[in-house]
């Protein structure tokens, strides 16, 4: 099989699997939240309500795609696509199994950070182009929140890079096979990355850019139909992305006992973290905005710097 054909097949399969996961996550999240909140959740359409997603999709596609007259049309149109594009681009560097990744980039980790830092434009431009006070407030919050948490996100991963000696995600997973899964030596880094990941995908409890109770859904107040659907799917793709990055960087990626194939191990570990994200949403209340910012800059930043210095020192001493 020629390398080009192989790349195309991997790309198409990854894309299909991701879209299926993102769509079904909507059902998973609603059922799980219902379970934890002692409700039933969607259970009417199909067995266990599984076909609910199809019904939702049909509904969202046939909804009137309304653009407010006071909105900035081109920007309003582009904003929701940005989040989908940047998240899907990030998946290109993730190794799902040995040899199964869209590209094997030697700056893969930096590529992921670059793409996640671009995702903020979706929220910022979406809120600005809506020309609505609440949306603008939401996008201002998003800009400040995401640019702050990006700093700790990048810093918390540098410990992993020091241990593996590479920015290549394949090398990082293989290094975990040699040393140990990095969540043991990098427990602080894992902690910071996990919190920064929630803030980057602006999920509850850190969903201040959309905070329904104060900002009536913030940056996507004016969006309807499939444009809103893209923000929605983008959020679920974001959770999937952060979960697979956690698995790749801290929990040994595809590594695991050999009675299951590597891809299955990867997907299983990913599913665990996706469920933890959903559970967090059910369990925690939303903090105030100043609490979020001071928690980041006064607690997570020193923590990630400390982690970086200690990791560097230990690696240097052991050499």
């Amino acid at each position: 099989m020629s390398p080009l054909l192989q790349t195309i097949i991997i790309t198409v399969v990854v894309l299909l699997v991701l879209m299926t996961i993102a769509a079904n996550l909507i059902w998973v999240e609603r059922r799980m939240l219902a379970l934890w909140q002692d409700r039933l959740g969607p259970n009417r359409v199909g067995p266990l309500g599984l076909v609910q997603v199809v019904a939702d999709m049909v509904k969202i596609f046939f909804k009137e795609d309304w653009i407010p007259k006071f909105a900035d049309r081109p920007v309003f149109f582009i904003a929701p696509t940005i989040v989908i594009i940047t998240v899907l681009m990030s998946f290109a560097v993730i190794p799902f199994a040995p040899g199964i990744s869209v590209v094997n980039l030697n700056v893969g980790l930096l590529f992921f950070l670059a793409m996640s830092s671009l995702g903020v434009y979706s929220v910022v431009l979406g809120g600005w182009s809506s020309n609505n006070k609440y949306s603008l407030l939401g996008s201002l919050r998003a800009a400040a929140q995401m640019i702050s948490y990006e700093v700790f996100m990048g810093l918390s991963l540098m410990g992993v890079v020091i241990l593996a000696g590479s920015f290549n995600l394949n090398d990082i997973v293989e290094a975990q096979g040699r040393i140990t899964w990095f969540f043991i030596p990098q427990i602080l880094g894992f902690f910071v990355f996990f919190l920064a990941g929630i803030a980057e995908t602006h999920r509850l409890p850190f969903d201040l850019p959309e905070a329904e109770s104060e900002l009536i859904s913030g940056f996507h107040s004016e969006y309807s139909g499939m444009k809103f659907g893209m923000f929605f799917v983008g959020e679920y793709l974001g959770i999937t992305l952060i979960s697979s990055m956690i698995v790749t960087l801290f929990f040994g990626g595809w590594l695991g006992p050999s009675f299951l194939p590597p891809v299955v191990w990867f997907l299983l570990k990913m599913a665990v973290f996706i469920l933890i994200f959903v559970l967090l949403r059910a369990a925690l209340p939303r903090p105030r905005y100043d609490q979020l910012m001071s928690y980041g800059w006064k607690f997570l930043l020193p923590l990630s710097l400390l982690n970086l210095v200690v990791t560097g020192l230990v690696v240097l001493l052991l050499k």
Binding site: A114, L118, V124, A143, G154
Partner: peptide, 22 residues
């Protein structure tokens, strides 16, 4: 190339937009 995107497109321009919108 990647640092160009992270620093300029990802960080500095977000701050620019933030200030412009404020």
């Amino acid at each position: 190339s990647i640092v160009q995107i992270i620093v300029y497109a990802g960080a500095i321009m977000v701050l620019f937009l933030f200030v412009l919108m404020l």
